[in-house]
Each structure stands twice: as C-alpha cells, then as structure tokens.
Design a protein around this nucleic acid. Structure first.
Lengths: 156, 156
DNA sequence: TGTTGATTTGCAATTTTGTTTCATCGAAAG
DNA sequence: CTTTCGATGAAACAAAATTGCAAATCAACA
C-alpha cells in the first residue's frame, strides 16, 4: 500500500506540510510531480487525514489543558459507541482515546478556565448516567506536542 | 495581541491549513494580502507553532498507541527538567504533559508493536533512577485526534 | 525470453496560490 | 487641524501546485 517513497514523504510533511514539493522531490529523489501525485493518492486513501496549523497554547494564554480519565458503569458496546460520538462532538475535547484497563476513556480537554471546566464537567460527565466516575489531571506544561508517527522506526 | 480577525484565521487554518488565503479573506471579510500578513506575523510571534500533515494511524496499521502515566521518586526541579528534555528527544513519544497530582508526567507513545514497547520501557523507564513507577494504558481506538484550540468558546 | 498492459515517471505548459509593492485610509497624538 | 503610524486593498509579481503527454518501468504471462 505504501512504499519507501511514501514513507519518506510522510515523514517530511508530518513535520512541515508547507515544504515545497520540489524540495521534497529533491530530498527523496523524485520529481515534484511524482511527489504531488503520491500525496494526492494518500489523501484519497485517507492515509493523510488532514493538514493543519498548530497553535502554541502558552503563547495565547487564557487556557487550561486537562487530562480526564473516565470510568464507565457498564461496558456495553452500544453505550460505548454513544459516548464516543458524544465526546467527538464536544469542541473542548481535543483528543479522545478509547482504552483498556480499569478505565475506559482518556480525554484531552482544552478550556478557557477552571471555572469553565467545572461547568463542563456538570454538563458532560456528572449528568451522564453511564459514567461511574472520572479523574481530572491538570496539565502544567506541554513539553512535546505533535501527532507524528515515527515511520523511520517502523522497519519498512 | 490577537484580534477577532486573527482568531477567525486561526480557527480556519487549525482545521485546514491548505485553505487558500483568498478563501479565508472572503470568509472573514479581509483581502488575501491582509490574511497573508496576519499569518506571517503570527508565525513570527510563535503563536503559529508549525504546519503539519496528520496521518491516520489505523489506515497504516502496524502501530500501537499507549498512554503512560509516570510517577517520580523526587520532584526536584532539575530532575524534572532533565526528564522533560529526555522525553522530548524520544521519537516514539508523541506528546508529553507535565502534570499535577499523584503522577508527574503523562506521555502519548506510538510504537510499531507491543514487543517494541517492552524494549522501550526497559531503555527509558526501568533504567531511569528517578522514575518510581509507571502505568501503561493501551489505546484501542482513537475517536478524536486533533490539537485544535476552540477559540470560538474563548469569549474574545 | 519476449510481448503486452498497467502503472509510474519526468518534463513542460498551465493554473492556482502566495508575496510584495504602493497608494490610500483611519485612528491616535501633538 | 495636521502629523504619524499602522493596517488595508488592488494590482503586479513570484512561487508553488496541478495537468497533459510521451517515455520509462515493471509484472504477468505466453
């Protein structure tokens, strides 16, 4: 499905998707057109999900990041799916991980303030019958912030 | 530092940074040139950290995502800073959160396999004097995957 | 081994997007 | 008022992405 060229392309644009295709081509030994076609193909296949700008949270201020571990009452598939869809829709939820172990979900939440978060917990967590309990961890600093997949480590 | 126009621009390019500046301008009521200058300025200020492609992990297969909660022995500033720098350098560590509460760090780790992860824990966690213990949570599914900051909710 | 067909490539033309220039506008300060 | 500073839009310009086409590559199969 993906060859070494594709991996190399992804490695580059995962770090900076504003890199000109000419430069990418030069680095990996392909023409710009070939690079362009491969990128297009990976977009169509859904391998490339989206292309985004990352904003530095500390620079803009007035925001708090929280990690929320969620423990469900019952672990019925339908209820889990319902919850997944619910979390997805909440703009304050940046990331949602469905996990194994004692807990069932991990969320990364970004809000303007703790007061705001308090309101959010009432609306989203406390009011939900299926959530037995949840644990909130306050983030003091974000040292590394990416969604990069380290292809170079994947034998390939 | 940032006005409503900037917020609107960020809101758009956080979702898709391939949106032409002309389109952005049209949507928010500015010329393309003005949009371009604002983006440039935010880059220089470090508000825009980077521009990247997001790869769909499930589509490429052969990878496991893990959440690691880390408990330190002593919480001396120097040791924490050292650890921060160490985690940052590890390519398998995608995100590193420095947190309050019983634990000290939360990591999001992406590896090719569990066997690979086992090796990584030996090299990184077990061998580190300052790490008292750590808890690994296996991610079964990622429902939402972004680094978006919901500006629309921030009064502004 | 040779042929066929499908796929991928590079080059060059074309189109789209990003960037710079320059004259103008408007608000704040004198 | 007048000056100054910063931001703007329109237009010119530069750079990048995209497409068409012929040639090259490669795998399947006779």
């Amino acid at each position: 499905m993906l060859d070494t060229f594709d991996h190399k392309i992804l490695e580059i644009i995962q770090k900076n998707n504003l890199t000109p295709q000419r430069d990418i081509g030069e680095r990996i030994g392909l023409s710009a057109a070939a690079v362009q076609r491969r990128i297009k193909r990976m977009r169509e296949l859904g391998i490339i999900e989206k292309d985004i700008t990352i904003v530095n949270r500390e620079k803009i201020g007035n925001n708090v990041t929280l990690l929320v571990e969620i423990f469900l009452d019952s672990e019925k598939i339908e209820q889990i799916d319902t919850l997944k869809r619910e979390f997805e829709k909440i703009p304050e939820v940046q990331q949602c991980y469905y996990v194994t172990g004692e807990s069932d979900f991990f969320l990364v939440v970004v809000v303007p303030s703790m007061a705001y978060y308090e309101q959010l917990t009432r609306k989203v967590f406390f009011s939900n019958e299926n959530i037995k309990r949840f644990r909130t961890v306050v983030v003091m600093g974000i040292t590394k912030n990416s969604l990069e997949i380290p292809f170079s480590l994947f034998v390939s």
